[in-house]
């Protein structure tokens, strides 16, 4: 286990190194630098700005400086919102995004897994067909379409839920954004659990469990479920990524002042340091999430331990 964790830590560090390097050089490959506008700024101002942000240093020096800043946890100043640093903007937006994201993850798992089990156990019955019909729609309807439909029906027509959620201070403000945000992953998990459950209940060890005289309840919820849940754990990493990026649109549609909104704005304004900083910030979160997921995975599936140590 110890060697496995070290192995995973090393590969995580490697991944982060590549991410930061690639992001840095991509952003610096933009011709004309970040201050090129439709209407050119006066020469002197550009020069002053370049000096201020050390943009006239050689690229390798800027790269090293950027690393120094990052290792200190400093993502630099925002190019567009003067007097604001990227860290401050993330500090403002991310807590709100994180709240929305966590509620969405919990909702996804608490609803998606039981639906998948139900569907597998009632294979070929109406419960299965209904669930899978909805889940098929769920994985094909884009989140922004789902969000607008929800806003239109429940906000504009029926007026049950607010159409804008603001800073997510009241529980009712969570309902629509959480449904819209988790629609895809919830459907995906339901389908995943169903197919994995169907696969597991055909296994020999399930027959063994029945031959031991266990009740059907124990066969399913003790012996089958723990095996069937393993693919769901592998999906947790992509799930988190999907929810984070999905929140770009959801936050915009529900006017939630989260990180996604800042990021989308920075893309619109071509605020390069903010784009770079957010990309790195998101990547770090997701890579760390993947690391945690790998550890959970090993704890649930005892077979992985062996493979991990053999490799590392």
């Amino acid at each position: 286990m110890g060697r496995y964790i070290i192995h995973r830590l090393v590969s995580m560090a490697l991944t982060l190194f590549f991410i930061i390097t690639i992001t840095f050089f991509l952003m610096h490959a933009i011709p004309g630098g970040p201050f090129t506008r439709e209407k050119p700024l006066p020469e002197a101002i550009i020069k002053a700005l370049n000096e201020k942000y050390h943009l006239d240093d050689p690229v390798w020096k800027q790269y090293l400086d950027y690393w120094k800043d990052i290792l200190r946890g400093d993502l630099g100043p925002s190019f567009q919102l003067t007097n604001r640093t990227v860290n401050e903007l993330i500090g403002l937006g991310f807590p709100i995004t994180a709240r929305l994201g966590i509620v969405a993850i919990v909702f996804t798992i608490l609803v998606g897994v039981p639906l998948g089990i139900l569907s597998a156990l009632r294979q070929g019955k109406w419960q299965d067909y209904t669930t899978m019909f909805i889940a098929t729609l769920g994985v094909t309807i884009p989140s922004f379409v789902l969000a607008t439909v929800l806003i239109y029906f429940f906000g504009v027509v029926l007026k049950i839920f607010p159409t804008t959620s603001g800073r997510l201070t009241r529980p009712i403000e969570y309902v629509l954004p959480v449904i819209a945000l988790s629609g895809y992953s919830l459907s995906f998990i339901a389908r995943l659990v169903r197919s994995s459950m169907l696969d597991v209940i055909k296994q020999d060890y399930i027959r063994t469990a029945r031959a031991k005289g266990l009740s059907e309840f124990k066969v399913i919820y003790k012996h089958a479920l723990k095996n069937a849940i393993i693919p769901v754990i592998t999906y947790l990493g992509p799930l988190a990524a999907g929810l984070l990026t999905g929140s770009f649109v959801i936050e915009k549609l529900f006017s939630i002042p989260g990180m996604g909104g800042y990021f989308v704005n920075s893309v619109g304004n071509r605020d390069y340091t903010m784009i770079m900083g957010s990309t790195i910030f998101y990547s770090v979160i997701l890579v760390v999430m993947n690391f945690i997921v790998d550890i959970i995975y090993v704890m649930v599936d005892p077979r992985i331990k062996l493979m991990g140590t053999k490799e590392g």
Binding site: T23, L26, I30, P31, Y272, S283
Partner: peptide, 26 residues
Amino acid sequence: VDILYSVPLLLYVILLQVVLEKPIEQ
């Protein structure tokens, strides 16, 4: 490929979109 897999690709789509905008236009 593993590294690319663990990265949120949509972010890189956005990044490339921003970076390649001008060169392609030119």
